[in-house]
């Protein structure tokens, strides 16, 4: 059982604050580190893996600092986002080299077991340079698993993978999680995290926006006020009808765009009520567009709440 503790950690590069006063504990099981691109996920992962020093605060692995401490790699397996490996080696020799570098007593057996785990026996004797992105990712996993680490850190592991490879990797990570290992992966895609992690940590603009059970956070995300842009054959009459509905917080008539900006507090009710209201008043709806469905705005809402 190994945990990573992040205590009041900030990281800045010159004037840019990449991570801002973040505290969290990553324990056994699968944790998803979710956030839009540039939210500071990679920086946070780098600090956990000992590849960046916190500007303030501490990052420890079972009490030992991760920065400038190569002994942590006895417990950590790291799957970096970057593609580069020792491309001139075959997959088997690459994983073997990783096993040797860990000083394992039987590196050959360990390498073979790791390659079997990621199901890459068939391509193991081919040079890495000939691998597809998904095959590389699996060999990177094998290299990270070769010393059977208790902590596995993965930076955007599903990027560029096809659905079949994605499912295979998810299955593998689930297995690791149920074995009691601490698995942390970063992603900017909500659905990936939803499928894999029960526990999530959300980062937005360098800040720790939310933490906990995925379903609770998902509910927070869907229950937030939603904005819509509506167009109809009679915007003013539609506005009047909408104002009288409980689910609507505000309505603005935009005469320049010939549209209505509507804010609703109850997403579920509004989507049911709107077509009925329109039908009851004999109004034709031309356009119903959610105005704030981008991931950034969804995450942004979490920061405010």
């Amino acid at each position: 059982m190994t945990s990573i503790h992040i205590d009041r950690v900030s990281k800045w590069f010159g004037h840019v604050v990449a991570v801002n006063d973040v505290s969290m504990t990553i324990g056994p099981g699968i944790t998803g580190l979710l956030g839009p691109n540039g939210a500071g996920k990679t920086t946070l992962l780098s600090m956990m893996a000992g590849f960046a020093a916190p500007s303030a605060g501490t990052v420890t692995l079972d009490g030992d600092p991760t920065w400038r401490n190569e002994q942590i790699y006895r417990h950590i397996g790291m799957v970096p986002e970057r593609e580069a490996m020792y491309d001139f080696l075959t997959g088997a020799k690459f994983v073997l080299a990783n096993a040797e570098l860990h000083g394992l007593s039987d590196p050959g057996a360990a390498a073979k077991a790791a390659i079997d785990t990621v199901d890459m026996q068939a391509a193991a004797d081919r040079p890495i340079a000939t691998y597809s992105k998904g095959m590389r990712q699996r060999m990177k996993m094998a290299a990270a698993l070769v010393h059977r680490p208790s902590v596995l850190l993965l930076d955007e592991p599903f990027n560029g993978m096809d659905p079949r490879q994605r499912m295979h990797l998810m299955e593998l990570l689930r297995q690791m999680g149920s074995d009691g290992r601490t698995v942390l992966f970063s992603s900017h895609i909500l659905e990936e995290v939803e499928q894999l992690a029960s526990h999530i940590e959300v980062m937005v603009a360098g800040r720790h926006a939310a933490s906990g059970d995925f379903r609770a956070i998902r509910r927070l995300m869907t229950d937030r006020p939603h904005r819509y842009l509506l167009r109809s054959d009679d915007d003013r009459r539609l506005a009047a009808a909408l104002v009288s509905d409980d689910s609507v917080v505000s309505v603005e008539v935009d005469s320049e765009e010939e549209a209505l900006h509507v804010q609703t507090s109850d997403f579920g009710r509004f989507t049911v009520r709107l077509p009925r209201l329109a039908a009851d008043h004999g109004i034709r709806l031309y356009d119903v567009t959610p105005a704030d469905e981008s991931l950034e705005s969804v995450f942004g809402y979490l920061v405010q709440s």
């Binding site: 893996a49 590849f51 190569e70 002994q71 790699y73 006895r74 950590i76 397996g77 790291m78 970096p80 970057r82 490996m85 020792y86 690459f94 080299a97 990783n98 570098l101 860990h102 000083g103 290299a143 990270a144």
Partner: peptide
Amino acid sequence: VYLLTKPV
């Protein structure tokens, strides 16, 4: 990174 993530 593959050399540095080792206890060497």
